[in-house]
């Protein structure tokens, strides 16, 4: 990895941390935070591999005890809590967002951006977070699923924002250099 890639990875870990400073809207036990926007943007701007590493780095910083999560929390407790699954899903979500973005790079537009951000930033995150919560709390999957609907409107808005931003950043400062196929043969 070039030093430049390391800097981009660190940058998006930092951006995700800064998004945690945006005040959360509390809906019952569910804090709706801007931080999953970091997952979507990291994947959309950096692509799969660097996006994955950026969110992994962010989680490492949280795990070693820096209070970077939206509520000002951090440390290992958040990974041991019932919402830990959502955290674990972030690097994978960013990877999937990045993968779809790279695959569609030559014809990337708002539609592809939305697809990438909804699949990676919402579907993947829920697909890991919800079963984790159900298993953890010993509650039926359906109940956990229903409860998670509180996140949905917020996440949909974030996917739209991330997509609009990603399309414009691609024109102004493209970081993903070549389509996925060429990258794979490197």
């Amino acid at each position: 990895m070039k030093t430049r890639d390391l800097a981009y990875v660190a940058l998006f870990a930092a951006i995700t941390a800064v998004l945690g400073l945006v005040p959360a809207i509390q809906v019952g036990p569910v804090p709706i935070t801007a931080q999953t926007l970091g997952v979507m943007l990291a994947g959309s701007v950096l692509g799969a591999r660097r996006g994955f590493l950026a969110l992994l780095l962010f989680l490492v910083l949280v795990a070693v005890g820096l209070p970077l999560l939206a509520s000002g929390s951090g440390g290992l407790s958040v990974f041991a809590g019932p919402s830990g699954g959502y955290l674990y899903s972030w690097p994978i979500g960013a990877f999937v967002v990045g993968l779809i973005t790279e695959l569609s790079w030559s014809r990337y537009n708002l539609g592809w951006a939305l697809l990438a951000n909804v699949v990676g930033g919402i579907v993947v995150v829920y697909a890991i977070g919800i079963p984790f919560l159900a298993l953890y709390g010993d509650i039926p999957l359906a109940a956990a699923f229903t409860g998670s609907f509180a996140f949905l409107p917020g996440d949909a808005v974030k996917a739209v924002v991330a997509s609009l931003v990603a399309v414009q950043v691609r024109r102004a400062y493209p970081v993903i250099e070549r389509p996925r196929r060429a990258a794979a043969s490197q």
Binding site: L6, A7, V9, A10, L11, A13, A14, I15, A17, L57, F58, V60, L61, L66
Partner: peptide, 8 residues
């Protein structure tokens, strides 16, 4: 990486 993130 950690130093850079904290700086950024």
């Amino acid at each position: 990486l950690i130093a850079m993130t904290l700086r950024f």
